[in-house]
Design a protein around this nucleic acid. Sequence first.
DNA 1: AAGAATCCCAACCGCAAGTTG
DNA 2: GCAACTTGCGGTTGGGATTCT
Length: 327
Amino acid sequence: MGRSPCCDENGLKKGPWTSEEDQKLTDYIEKHGHGSWRALPKLAGLNRCGKSCRLRWTNYLRPDIKRGKFTPEEEQTILQLHSVLGNKWSAIAKHLPGRTDNEIKNFWNTHLKKKLIQMGFDPMTHRPRTDFLAALPQLIALANLRQLVEQRPWDDQSASQLQADAVQAAKLEYLQCLLQSAAAIATSPSSSSINTSPTELEQIGLLSPSQMSSLSSLSSPRILEGVNGQDLVTWQVPDIQIPSSSFFEHEQPIINGTNQNSDYSANGGEGEKLLLLSEDSLPPLADFPISNLGDACSTSSCEAVGNSTQLPIWSDSFYDEFMSEFA
DNA sequence: AAGAATCCCAACCGCAAGTTG
DNA sequence: GCAACTTGCGGTTGGGATTCT
């Protein structure tokens, strides 16, 4: 299938359209329809290629084009559809009457993508970004390395404790985010597996071997039906010792079966606690609605987004404080 | 006030699927 | 079945508009 020479043809005008050209194109299409786009320019008296004419008509001159800012409802629809369809702009445009694929694409690239990134989401996966978390093991190692390099006398009890707590906190936050991501993945019908296994956690030094053995059941989360029809992802998790330093004083324990918060139910026996992960069950993270699943969504494919009404991100204050611990 | 930086969007480019002879 | 042609799509860009310094 060869390429059409189209606009490469000599003498054809490129660039912005004049009002005269717009008028000629509109008049012709209103009278005759566009027919063959390739033949149209000549018939309409335009010194343009058919491709340029088609683009001008579909993106600008078409009478049913909706102009002006995108409404919040349209924004939500785009977010929802993009999470399902990806960069299928024409498919998304079919759900937004009067909007062109080009317009939606521009709106995505100039507004929505940036918005998602600012909010801590990967604009392609619509999940919390974990790129900086990839550096966490290195940060942990760095913190430990500093300890060695500085060769400080670690009989200084408080400094030592702070250092250890920071490292432990980093490990726990990393683990928490992995669990959170796993919950998001497990509740997403489009995903079937969790990428980070307990073995990997062990490999990066996140958990001790004893913790690993009790955490092995994490690789097989279970989805339970929650009280309000909201699915809950569950793992059998061990008690993990939470550091008690000032670093955590304002934070609630991350994994603690004895926590009285309703989302953490201590119904496991034999020293095991059942951790219930609903989408808002992890206290240190800042929750906010990524999409209000709403009314604009009517297709079956759109329903697939239904489980991700709220996704967590790291709060800025926590992130800053966390990073400052390693600075 | 002016130059620089950034934003925004219309339009172009190239690829690939669909159509036709 | 094949090649030429047409159409549609998604990524990218040029330059005007706007905001910042």
